[in-house]
Amino acid sequence: MNDTPPIAIEASGLTRIFRDFWGRPKVRAVDGISLSVPAGRIFGLLGPNGSGKSTTIKMILGLLRPTSGTLTVLGRPPADVAVKERMGFLPEESYLYKYLTATEILSFFATLSGIPAGSRDETVHDLITRVGLDRARHRRIGEFSKGMARRVGLAQALLNDPDLILLDEPTSGLDPVACREVKDLLLSLSARGKTVLICSHHLADMQDICSRVAILLDGRVCAQGAVPDLLRDPGRLQLTVSGLAPEKLPDLLRYIERETGTAPVVDHAGRSLESVYVEVVSKRRAAP
């Protein structure tokens, strides 16, 4: 039996050159990258500004054509409309019609996504509730905060229950609790077999949820692999001990120093600031 998951996105030698008015090469935004995004996983695309992340996403969406190389999305060319029936996309900014209400805009995108009229209202209602915009459903997008508009953007990306979700900076503009909720949502989607491709600068978020990442620089892939493999430092060991009596610690440290020749660093195990914040805010909100 083969345990290798199917590939959702396959890029080989993918190159995109932007040209000036006269057709002369101006920028090599993506330079021969090769990627394999396994289906059912969360894949992170990391890199500094201008490294080619958004250009890659736009090629996956079929908005840009590769200058050279091959790209298949869910086994088809990216410009194929049938691919988009199984795809959801959240752009970096909330490019929404600001004169429309949350319900109107989601209903519009639901129609475009091919959701039947009979179940459209119910789907829109469920998603609005799911992204926490129940009270703002009839307010215009123009009146929303950045975080609220982001939630609408996320809701529209999930309207058609897509198999492949492309998210450009999904937690940008969100408060830590909402950020945690989004990450939990993405993990639950992955658990349901959905493929998620994320571009982000929030490395901690990426570390939390991504199973694989690729690091881009100047349009090229500098590193790629499973997150635990990339994070592993073979020269260092981390020992976590619980229930050790304080009086026995000096003996243990002396033993380690004698065996390794260096003094070990001792500290209490801590939590991330995010987990503390989420705990405090959640308790406060839960209080009567």
Partner: peptide, 13 residues
């Protein structure tokens, strides 16, 4: 305004 990117990300010709 890049709104068309969202529209064309849907299965629309």
């Amino acid at each position: 305004d890049r709104r068309l990117q969202l529209v064309l990300a849907k299965p629309v010709r």
